[in-house]
Design a protein around this nucleic acid. Structure first.
Lengths: 109, 109
DNA sequence: TATATAAGCAACCACATGGTTTCGCAAAAT
DNA sequence: ATTTTGCGAAACCATGTGGTTGCTTATATA
């Protein structure tokens, strides 16, 4: 067993996914984020630490407040990983298209 | 705490991601899969159980062998979740395009 | 200056996770 | 008929995870 702190582990937790969605459009402070959940601010802080560690989120201090911002580019890593499968499902679809075309063709004859 | 057995939790583990990639193109038996890793066949079996539970994988018995097949369509759920962010990063890119266009424009003048 | 507020950190806890070994069972091979 | 093989299930173990409470520090505000 080893310490994993990658983006896939980060998005595994539903609360973390909700936080990501929440701050996707505007930066937010831990307190503001915590208001949306039934967990303590400290728990939110721990989630934000994990998100920060895998660079999904960036801090921005403003006085005693810390605004957290989603690093949307990091999300593309998931998209990139999906690419290998996207190729497959597109192929399968085109095969289905061919199959359907053949059936159509046979009916005509 | 509650039991999570969703696709995001399934792909959180690196070994599980490797298994998914491995069987993406051809069905494989647990033994054949286990040969690719430094873990026991039983450990692979546990991973396959998790993948089966969230319907990422389907079994296909053939005598005493069981072939595991990736349900590629299930992978689209991740793609679907990414959609909300895809919109954002495409907007940011078009904003960047506008910015670059403006700079170009100013140079001309 | 004293106090309230925002946030991180540390210690703690119950339960989840990923691995192992051992076992049992059914199918194939001898 | 006996042995080998392929597999899953169960019990067990160390470590990870997600939450809590309590504390400290820094900035605002009375």
């Amino acid at each position: 067993m080893y310490i994993r702190r990658d983006i896939f582990q980060a998005i595994a937790d539903p609360t973390r996914r909700a936080i990501i969605t929440l701050i996707a459009f505007q930066t937010m402070t831990p307190n503001a984020i915590a208001e949306h959940f039934d967990i303590t601010r400290q728990a939110v802080s721990k989630h934000l630490r994990i998100l920060t560690e895998c660079e999904l989120v960036k801090q921005q201090s403003e006085g005693r407040e810390i605004y957290y911002q989603l690093q949307i580019n990091k999300m593309k890593e998931i998209d990139k990983w999906l690419d290998q499968f996207r190729k497959i499902w597109e192929t399968r679809y085109s095969q289905l298209d061919t199959l359907l075309a053949n059936i159509k063709d046979k009916k005509k004859k």
